[in-house]
Design a protein around this nucleic acid. Structure first.
Lengths: 165, 165
DNA sequence: TATTGTTATACTCTATAACTATA
DNA sequence: TATAGTTATAGAGTATAACAATA
C-alpha cells in the first residue's frame, strides 16, 4: 500500500528557536495525504458538483434534487422510504426536499392505498417537462466533465466505481 | 458516452387515472443517474469520510482538519493562504479551523517576519504527538477502505484520480 | 413492536461580504 | 490597488430524536 507512516521526525519537531518560515515555494509536501483515496475522490467530486450546480443554475436544481426527480420519474408510485434508501438520503431530509419539489409543482404525493402510512410518489406534467430540460443540461454537464478528465479516464472511473455499489 | 437521454416518455407521464403505486420491488431503475460520474464518486466518498470520522472519533478529527494538520506538519512555516489554496479551502473557513486547532494546543501561528499580514504555521509538540497517533488511525482507516473495495481497485482509482489533480 | 412520514434541532460545510492591516 | 487574515452571515447537507398514524 502506498500509505506509509513517516519514520523520521518532521522539521517542525525542531525546537521553537530553530523554526523558520518557509519563504519561497518549493512545492508543498502532501505527505500521507497522497495515499488517501478519500482525499482525491473528494477533490474531483466537489469540482463535479460545482460544475453541475452552475450548469443547472437556470433551474436551481442541485445534485440531490436531480437524483430524486430522476428516480421518481423512472420508478413512479414508490414510497419515500424506498427512494431515500436507494439514494442514501435520510428520510427526514427527503421529506423536506419533497416538500420543496412539491412547492414547485414538480412532484405529487398520493396517499398509498395499500399502506396508510406511506405516500406514492409521482412526477406532475410540469415536473416531467422540467425534468426533460434538466436532463438535457445534466447531459451537457457530464460532457464537460468528460472533456475535463478525458473520455477514457471517465469510463474507467465509472466502471471501477459502479460495480462496487 | 454512456449517458443518453430517454427517447420514449416514462410511465409517469400517463394520465393521473392510470397511475398505479408500485407494490413489489422489481429493483429500481436508476436511469440517467447510471451515467453520472459525480453520482458514483459521491457515494464512495461519503462512505469513506464516514469511516474516517468514525475511525478517528477518539481524537475528534475530521478529514479537513486532518489534511490541514498533515500539510502544516510537512510544510512548517507556511502562511494560511498557501495552505488554503492547496486544499481548496476558503481562507475564512481555514481561519476558523486553525482557531479550533490552536485551542486544542496542536498548532501555532507565529507572526511572519517578512510579511506583516501573514502568519507562519507550525505544529506544537503536543500537535506532533497527536498527529503521530492520528496518522496511525488514518492508516488503519485506509486499510479498511482497501479491504472494502479491494487493493487493485483502490490502486487503480488512486492512479486515475491522482494525475488529474 | 416496528415502520412511514413529519417536525425540530444542532452541527458541519460552503460561499460571500465587509473589515483591518499590511504590501 | 491588491493581498492576508478575520469576523459575520446565510444556505445546504447531515444526523438525531421525538412524535402521530399505521402496520
Amino acid at each position: 500500500m502506498a500509505l506509509r507512516q513517516r519514520t523520521s521526525a518532521p522539521p517542525s519537531a525542531a525546537p521553537d528557536s530553530a523554526r523558520k518560515e518557509t519563504v519561497n515555494s518549493p512545492r508543498l509536501d502532501f505527505d500521507t495525504l497522497d495515499g488517501h483515496l478519500g482525499y482525491f475522490l473528494r477533490r474531483l467530486q466537489v469540482h463535479i458538483f460545482q460544475d453541475f450546480i452552475r450548469g443547472l443554475a437556470a433551474f436551481d436544481v442541485r445534485p440531490a434534487q436531480y437524483s430524486v426527480m430522476v428516480l421518481i420519474a423512472s420508478n413512479p408510485g414508490r414510497p419515500q422510504a424506498i427512494i431515500a434508501r436507494a439514494l442514501n438520503i435520510e428520510r427526514a431530509a427527503l421529506a423536506k426536499m419533497l416538500h420543496e419539489l412539491q412547492g414547485r409543482g414538480w412532484i405529487q404525493r398520493l396517499p398509498s392505498v395499500r399502506d396508510g402510512r406511506s405516500h406514492a410518489l409521482f412526477m406532475t406534467r410540469d415536473g416531467e417537462k422540467a425534468l426533460a430540460r434538466i436532463k438535457s443540461l445534466a447531459l451537457t454537464h457530464e460532457r464537460r466533465i468528460e472533456r475535463l478528465i478525458g473520455p477514457e479516464r471517465r469510463r474507467e472511473l465509472l466502471n471501477l466505481l459502479k460495480d462496487f455499489g
